[in-house]
Design a protein around this nucleic acid. Structure first.
Lengths: 220, 220
DNA sequence: CGCGTACCGTACCGTACAGTACGCCGGGTA
DNA sequence: TACCCGGCGTACTGTACGGTACGGTACGCG
């Protein structure tokens, strides 16, 4: 069921069928991303077609309509973010810390990236008008995806006697708050923060320490 | 040239001059708010004029252009949020807790309100395109305004030996994160959360306890 | 070779919406 | 009474943009 029999690509990203885009289609989606980042409101179908050197008719054939194109773009961007799902075993305090640090760094890197900011802006704007659930998709691939990856780690930490909490969702949300703080909303509202790698690592470290201070147990 | 009495209202909310709107103008701005909340993208100048029973020409006369109207609306909404600035004196542990609880409840109430969500959506969407700094205004009246109100309390708490921190801005940002967590982004992206008063109070209480666990000092 | 298919480029259509022009009314002033 | 003038309603203009139609080109296949 893979691509490259260059025949009859159907509408991509249409709600249920996540049928991955062909190479050419991915190029189009990258063009969309590029336009979003450069100038959020210059995202017209004409501009996309020009940038991607394809015809509008092809865009409509592949993606149905403008919303379809945006949806496909969101999913394409999402698909290259959550790379690996890591199995958790044998946690000691150091590896727990390490895992959490990793998550925090990853998350901060994502939300401070230009493409994430641009994408979230589009999705937020879209959420205002009903129809076409871009916001839901972004949430599912961002906030909720990371939650589903972190919670098993937290639970493993609890199983190993390193953490104490009743509700892993609540614990995760606290972690989320400690990591993100006001960063995302400030970026979305147009403030320029540019954190470099060091700053992100420092921030992540602080968040992890605070989280462990709240939920950690003295290691046996 | 002009008799500057109750006549001759100039353009409102034009960048520098915060010249507060007249009663009639406030009614217009309320109409804008109403439209925003009801259906974010139905916010056309025609719709506003119809809703407020005024002519478009008047809108343009008063507010210059669409951005001016939006800006004035944001400022109008902001002006009725931060009601009182409370002088801080004689903090003991209980009143510190109480103050923080108050801030947290206020903030959660604001960010979960429909008008705030709608307004932030507009501002975020606007921040994508340059020109007209709606995002900055929202930040200044939201995130930063609350920060400026909380930090003196934190510093008073430190002066009273109840809190320990080096940087009040950093401490506040942690507080902010603990209070807001993922709520605002989820709402902006279209999730429906509707927290009632009880839930907000519980949430606020948890955040305050966590903050004090991180920054509190055993009271002498 | 002719035929179908996939796609590009461009011209085109309809509509929505920001912004403008103008006629009319009602109330304040003399 | 006459006359301003602020503001209402509505009709109008220009344009940007989503979506469609169509001609032209390259390529694979019988």
């Amino acid at each position: 069921m893979r691509s490259n029999l260059a025949t009859d690509q159907e509408t991509v990203g249409a709600a249920d069928a996540p049928e991955l885009p062909s190479v050419r289609q991915r190029a189009v989606l990258d063009a969309v991303l590029g336009l979003m980042v450069e100038d959020g409101d210059q995202l017209t179908m004409d501009a996309v077609a020009r940038r991607a050197s394809c015809s509008k008719e092809t865009l409509y054939k592949w993606f149905g309509d403008r919303d379809g194109l945006l949806t496909a773009t969101v999913q394409w961007q999402a698909s290259r973010v959550h790379a690996g799902r890591d199995a958790v075993q044998s946690l000691d305090g150091a590896t727990l810390r390490e895992h959490l640090q990793d998550f925090a760094v990853t998350w901060l890197t994502v939300i401070t990236s230009e493409s994430s900011v641009a994408l979230n802006r589009i999705a937020v704007a879209h959420a205002g008008s009903r129809k076409s659930n871009l916001g839901g998709i972004v949430l599912a691939n961002g906030r909720f995806a990371i939650g589903e990856r972190v919670k098993p780690v937290l639970e493993a930490g609890r199983a190993a006697g390193l953490l104490a909490f009743a509700d892993s969702e609540a614990a995760f949300r606290t972690f989320f708050g400690l990591v993100g703080r006001d960063i995302q909303i400030r970026l979305l509202l147009g403030e320029v923060l540019d954190l470099d790698g060091d700053e992100i690592r420092r921030d992540a470290g602080r968040a992890v320490e605070q989280f462990l201070a709240l939920y950690g147990r003295a290691e046996p």
